[in-house]
Amino acid sequence: MFSLLGLKTEADEDGMKPCPIVDPTPDLDDTKDVAILVDDMAQEEALIAWDERHPKMDIGTPYPDMAAFRKAIKQFAINGEFEYGTTKNEPARFRAFCKGQGIKGEPCQWCLSASWQRDQNCVMVILFSCFICIVCK
């Protein structure tokens, strides 16, 4: 196995110590001697960062895409220890409601709506209503 990888286990006849055969890495700094330095980071596209373990569902909270938002709402339900249902969802719109009940048997009044915002290029929470519910306790 060592010989296949180009490694030596014992000293050669010349008395040299064993060492791995490694090609030198080329210098990757290709910005030397350029006429115009180009930055690939687009200024208009902001980086949307959110806490994956404790997501917030406040009105106006942005998420980078719908997959990230769905992951966030699942984690939000796990943290709040409740079960949510969905209604009339589309690729660019998401609606959820609480499936739980209060102590007296009344249904939970929690609901949430999020949609894709073209002008801001993100998914944003547009409605979060929580009257008397088990989520906010």
Rank of each mutant, 00 (worst) to 15 (best):
C133A: 13
E10A: 12
C133P: 07
D27C: 12
E83I: 12
P64H: 01
I103W: 00
K88D: 12
F131I: 13
A77F: 02
E106V: 00
A35W: 00
T9M: 10
R70M: 10
V34G: 02
F2H: 13
A11W: 07
L47G: 12
I21F: 12
L37W: 08
K137I: 07
D29P: 00
A49Q: 12
D33Q: 12
I132S: 15
V22L: 12
F2A: 13
K74V: 07
T9Q: 15
V135N: 01
A114D: 02
K88I: 06
M1W: 09
R53P: 04
V125C: 09
F2R: 07
W110P: 07
L47H: 11
I103C: 07
L28E: 08
A72I: 07
F2G: 07
T25F: 04
K17T: 14
I132T: 13
D12W: 03
Q117F: 05
F94C: 00
F69W: 10
F94G: 02
T61E: 14
Q75E: 09
D65G: 01
E90Q: 12
F2N: 14
T61N: 01
S3W: 05
G85N: 02
Q109S: 15
F94V: 00
G85D: 01
W110A: 10
G6I: 03
P24A: 11
F82R: 02
L37E: 06
N89D: 15
G105Q: 02
I134W: 05
E81R: 05
P26F: 03
R93I: 15
K74C: 06
